[in-house]
Design a protein around this nucleic acid. Structure first.
Lengths: 128, 128
DNA sequence: GTCACTATATGACTTGGTCATATAGCATGA
DNA sequence: TCATGCTATATGACCAAGTCATATAGTGAC
């Protein structure tokens, strides 16, 4: 998103530096709602998503631990055959509930954006 | 937005605590694009917006100074008749350009959200 | 003179996210 | 057997954004 001028390093004038803050947990929780998975696998699934912000590995693992701490996910170690052991996460009931709450939240974020963009377009009608 | 369960104080499980991070500068810049204004006035205009996150005064003043530091806005003191002096801000050309860039960014954020919500709905078809 | 409103500003803190880096298991080939 | 590279998880240092509390001061009304 927003690939345009990003000086990188120095304080960029782009709001949120081309990121979409506040959506990491929902994104991860949604993936876990589809199927249980371990971090590395999630990382790959999250990276395929071309029009999404690439996921930082450190962020992902921290997020998973946090989701677990909050009771939204649970994990257990599973022996990786022909690979290091992996911690497999799955959604809890509470996590599912939270996901629904976040979905409502995201709808309202979208309305928020819509209204901002509408104001913008009202001011500068017809812009690329 | 997202008025549901917000424990308030302790770490809330709600992503971004019902806020919409990363949009403060665009919101302010957009208002300035409509008409020059001083902080207090912007604060009132931003608070009327029912479906938007209420604006923190400290945040607003810091944002204005930052926009100025970044060359996106300029200000000058104006004698407030029957009121304290106020610092009136207006958009610079660079600020206008940045606003357009942010609009593009916001459109891509919206797509981002749309795609997340589409994934969600694909998994849980027909949800309130 | 004190109260309420207008107006701007800052310090302390929290959260979310980035970047660099550490650590370790396992397979393969030199 | 040793280096290399992939899989896998994790942490420390740092930065940006935002919140909350608070400070300061001008003005008018009572």
């Amino acid at each position: 998103m927003c690939q345009d001028e990003r000086p990188k390093g120095k304080t960029s004038p782009c709001c949120c530096q081309g990121r979409m803050p506040g959506l990491v947990r929902p994104r991860v929780l949604l993936l876990l709602a589809i199927t249980p998975a371990h971090g590395y696998e999630l990382l790959e699934r999250l990276s395929q998503d071309a029009h999404m912000t690439p996921m930082d590995a450190g962020m992902l693992y921290r997020t998973l631990r946090r989701l677990e701490r909050e009771g939204l996910a649970r994990s257990e170690w599973s022996a990786g055959e022909g690979a290091p052991a992996r911690r497999v996460y799955e959604l809890t009931d509470q996590g599912l509930e939270q996901l629904h709450a976040w979905a409502r939240h995201m709808r309202s974020m979208r309305q928020h954006l819509d209204s901002l963009l509408a104001d913008y377009e009202a001011r500068f009608s017809a812009e690329a």
